[in-house]
Every structure is written in C-alpha cells, then in structure tokens.
C-alpha cells in the first residue's frame, strides 16, 4: 500500500499532519515492495526485444489519483551487463548500458480519456480503463539494437519496473527527497542469454 493513497481515503482532512506524517512516511518506506513483473527477453538477429508486464499497483488508487488531476509514472529499467572474468567475478556483472523507457499517464477531462505519454513524446488516449491499465503497465517489444550493446555470449539482462503513484510537479519536487510519493519497484529479474543461439 502506498502512503499517499492510504491518506487520501475519504477526506483530505484525514491527512496525518506534521511530524507524525513524516514518521508514517518513514514507516511506509520500510514496507516490502508489492510490485511484480514478468519479463520476456527475446533476442533476434537485429535487436534484443524486451517485453514486460507489471502487476501489483493498486487500481482504485491509480484512477483516483488520475481523476484528481495528478499524473502517474511507470518506468521500466533494463540493464545490460556482462559477467566479469573469473578473478573479478566477486565484483558482480559489468554494467554495459541501462535503458529506462517510461510512460506518464493523466486523465484529460476534455477528452474524457486517459492520456498516456511515452518518454519520446508519443501520446495515446484511452477511453477504456481496462485497456489503459493494461497498456500503462506493459512494455511491448522494446527494441534494443545490437549496435547499442556488444553482442557477446553470456549477456545478462536485468529488468525491473518502478511505479510512481504521484508525479510531483516541479515546484513540489523537493518532496521527492523525503519520499512523500514513494515509488514502488519490482524486484530485479535476471536473464542470462546467449544471443548467438538465437542468431539464425
């Protein structure tokens, strides 16, 4: 359960004020993440395809946030690594690239639709809540060209998703330092691939 939604149940008057609010924030930050994801890593001859489906975000709170005029954000984090040589293996994988495709969604009362904007500016609008929810929490066939990463056996792909239930407008971005809109992240999933196997 994410704190902002907990506090906005019936009335904003019920907001926990002052330091007790900070205490609750700190307490909430210790809660285990509930976001989960499934990732499908599909190497092709030209690119590496990554698809993800995220579950666990609270549906009711999501739509309540959107209808109050705020935005939510889902960021998909994809790390491409290679294992180190044996003497340095204790240091973990060597990170090569990290990709962070993201989408922000809001409710447009003029369109009476949910508007989803990808990080490249591509905009989609949805009148149907279910379709919108499914698209918001899924990354379909995100393509990482082999030219962007080195194609070697033992490629490690790690994936995670981060859901920000309230995207702060810039003037309030200071609150993110205090985790007031604590993002929820899914655990990293690790996929070890041998891209040459998929190579025709």
């Amino acid at each position: 359960m994410l704190w902002p939604h907990c506090s906005r149940t019936d009335s904003r008057k019920s907001l926990v004020k002052g330091f007790s609010g900070v205490f609750l924030l700190l307490a909430a930050s210790t809660l285990p993440a509930q976001l989960q994801h499934q990732a499908i890593i599909q190497p092709t001859s030209d690119y590496l395809s990554v698809s993800m489906t995220v579950a666990g975000a609270e549906v009711e709170a999501l739509f309540e946030t959107l209808h109050e005029g705020m935005r939510v954000r889902v960021e998909y984090r994809i790390r491409i690594s290679y294992p180190r040589d044996r003497p340095l293996r204790l240091l973990g994988d060597r990170l090569l690239r990290e990709f962070r495709p993201s989408v922000e969604a809001r409710w447009d009362p003029f369109l009476a639709a949910y508007v989803m904007v990808e990080d490249d500016g591509t905009t989609f609008s949805y009148a149907d809540e279910a379709t919108f929810y499914a698209d918001l929490f899924s990354l379909a066939n995100y393509r990482i060209p082999w030219s962007a990463i080195r194609r070697e056996p033992g490629l490690v792909v790690e994936a995670s998703a981060e859901y920000t239930p309230i995207v702060f407008v810039p003037g309030l971005s200071i609150l993110s330092l205090f985790a007031a809109n604590r993002s929820d992240s899914s655990p990293w999933s690790r996929h070890i691939l041998d891209p040459w196997v998929a190579d025709p």
Binding site: G21, M70, I166, V169, L175, F178
Partner: peptide, 25 residues
C-alpha cells in the same frame, strides 16, 4: 488550469510535508 489544479491538489495533499521539507531544507 490542469497544471494549476495538479499543483494545487498535490500541495493540498502534501502541504504539511511540504512545510517540513522546506524547514528541513
């Protein structure tokens, strides 16, 4: 209007935290 409403709703929601944040800052 949408931006103002968004800012207002967030400030309304986090006003106490915002003051504390500013004080801590």
């Amino acid at each position: 209007l949408a931006d103002a409403l968004e800012f207002f709703v967030q400030l309304e929601l986090f006003q106490s935290n915002f003051v504390i944040a500013i004080a801590l800052f």
